[in-house]
Design a protein around this nucleic acid. Structure first.
Lengths: 202, 202
DNA sequence: TTGACAAAAGAACGACCGTTCGTTTTAATG
DNA sequence: CATTAAAACGAACGGTCGTTCTTTTGTCAA
């Protein structure tokens, strides 16, 4: 890990700060000037690390994806496969939304809303990351079905849609209206989703 | 309606275009220059109608709220009170998300994400509108309980949370990933939510 | 320690931002 | 019609945007 040159180190430092900034101001609100000022360096010096603003934004999106993987996905893999892993993922996700690291909300969520009408490489990047998440959850659910933890006739895509919707809905309620009950609602909703996906007790 | 002066007419015209623009580019991406160009008028002439950009943005948010009321809420009031009205609301909402009028997605949703970390009058405005929607739905659900359409022990806030989450989740899936099954998932989820809120058949 | 190269700084660019102001055009009213 | 107020314009302001240069500084191996 000490094979990290000076340039690579500052680049990583820039990305960390850029991620924090874009989580509050959005991907478009992320400006090179303010980012440089926060880091106490010159615009041009910062700029040279990325070559263009779009590439900076792309790097931010990728970094956000890595962070999400580290905080939400990877820890869930330490749980036993099947239902425990699926539940752990949603719990990690709720914790992540509550502000794990980033000052603003989940940057991927705002990026999605921001880019949904703007075709281009950034939009493709975000869509791809969302697809990866979706298929990861689907894989976990299918495992849980194989393990007998969930109904064999469960509609996997429907389950994933509802789980993701709850997570996004929680972010909305928690961050904008910061309603104190939002977390409880989200946990209840996830629990209900799981409960009605269990195998029949007959 | 002919009591509308020239100024009021152009102001309305400006707001319509501003709403369309902000639905694709976001509230922050809405600029006076591009808006004026689209309308074929001068920046200063347009500016004079609002006095500041923030007031323009506030007017856009309010206009978006009116539009949502016209397209989603008001039509549901023509249905009989109780469950039919609640279901109609969610169906209207899905249609609205599919692009009723606006080229971009629901402007209120992106505004929420955009402003959730930026305290100020705009954030308050959006939060207030969301609160109004939430309490409107809650009122409808309570009516349905009184009519005997829904379980008397139903957790109203929980119901509202899940319904709103589904609607937002649909927007996300439909607009960003434009997954063809998204609408079906959303309708299934709403139907499931309603079904498990019905009175016991015992 | 020197020499080569990577990294950061600095100044400047054209473009666009929100905003102001004075002027001109247009609409409403007697 | 003439008058007056409302509405739209055009030019300009200070700032910031992303980006491009050239120059200076720092790093790191020979």
């Amino acid at each position: 890990m000490r094979a990290m040159s000076k340039g690579e180190r500052t680049r990583a430092m820039i990305l960390d700060e850029a991620l924090a900034l874009s989580s509050t101001d959005g991907l478009a609100g992320l400006t090179i000037g303010s980012l440089a000022e926060r880091l106490g360096m010159s615009k041009s010096g910062l700029f040279a690390h990325f070559g263009s603003k779009e590439q900076l934004q792309a790097a931010v999106i990728e970094r956000a994806g890595e962070m999400f993987t580290d905080v939400v996905i990877r820890p869930s893999l330490e749980k036993p496969r099947g239902l425990p892993r699926v539940c752990a993922l949603f719990e990690n996700w709720i914790d992540w939304t509550k502000g794990a690291g980033l000052p603003g909300g989940c940057p991927m969520q705002s990026a999605s809303l921001e880019l949904d009408d703007k075709p281009g490489p950034l939009r493709d990047l975000v869509a791809h990351q969302q697809d990866r998440l979706r298929s990861f959850i689907a894989r976990g659910v299918r495992m849980a079905m194989e393990e007998g933890h969930l109904r064999p006739d469960l509609d996997v895509d429907q389950f994933v849609f509802e789980g993701i919707s709850i997570s996004f809905g929680f972010a909305m309620n928690h961050r904008l209206l910061n309603h104190p009950d939002a977390e409880q609602w989200a946990r209840n909703a996830i629990r209900g989703l799981v409960q009605r996906s269990l195998p029949d007790k007959t």
